[in-house]
Write a protein that binds this DNA or RNA. Sequence first.
DNA 1: CGGCATCGGTTCTGAAATCGAACCTAGTGA
DNA 2: TCACTAGGTTCGATTTCAGAACCGATGCCG
Lengths: 156, 156
Amino acid sequence: MRWSEIGDQRCSVARTLSVIGERWTMLVLREAFLRTRRFDDFQRKTCAPRPILADRLRVLVEHGILERRPYGNHPDRYEYRLTDKGLDLYPVIVSLMTWGDRWMPDDDDIPPVQLEHKDCGHVTHPELACPECGAWIGARDMVAITTDTESTRRSA
Amino acid sequence: MRWSEIGDQRCSVARTLSVIGERWTMLVLREAFLRTRRFDDFQRKTCAPRPILADRLRVLVEHGILERRPYGNHPDRYEYRLTDKGLDLYPVIVSLMTWGDRWMPDDDDIPPVQLEHKDCGHVTHPELACPECGAWIGARDMVAITTDTESTRRSA
DNA sequence: CGGCATCGGTTCTGAAATCGAACCTAGTGA
DNA sequence: TCACTAGGTTCGATTTCAGAACCGATGCCG
């Protein structure tokens, strides 16, 4: 199967990756969450090749994750901002960062970016919890229920 | 900059992606969390090309995310299992899935895989919360503190 | 015993993507 | 006038990917 066709898999992970799973895209999103908005700034911060960056921004805009809006008038400049759909990717980026801080520390082992919770003031890594009962969720606390489309899926 | 060098960036997201950011790798991990263990099963479920799959499994083993261990004796067969380091990637996969369920539903809009919390029995999507105060965390509830390596980084 | 199947890969080739440098367009400032 | 900025696009060389075929060791069937 071609990578470009993974969006066709009946799987939400695959469909998500079909939009944000290309090289560089996650780094673009990282910068967007750090309030980078302009093409050249994305380029400098991510170090992505310019043609690639242009493509990734286009895809993110097409899928409504970023919004491309004009700013500053005459030379017609544009900036890219996260939409609600884009802001909702926060858990993905944070999870990647958390794992990296824990398992791939660099030489000076102070993490490059730390997160402070506005409300309580603590510097910490957000973790998954169950919205129903509030318990913290680890790898084997959830059971996966695969819902075959009964009518279409038959034995073998 | 080459994609193969992103691990050099002083950023935990980039370093994480240098290990699990290649095409197909996340789908391999998805299957690992669904308890797939064998080469051919990974191949059938992810639909990744066999040489690519072999490479991705090798990288995951090299980084200690999967463990390759023999099972069943004589023809020398191997299976791949998540290590603790690998299990700790659960929030990444779950976040990708949650976003896909919310923003990229397929035609019959019942999600392909649902998660039931073992302890409380509810079918739900885990969400991020602050480990210190327990509050739910959304995109703009955390402030990023960039810790420049003071001695090496100077103005401009 | 021969022939086919299984599992876990590797090899090979053409097709697709990525990369970096250079270029383009439109305005601004000196 | 010339240099500079911002937001891209074009080009050609390199790298990666995709998929089909193959391989080696064993087991299963008759």
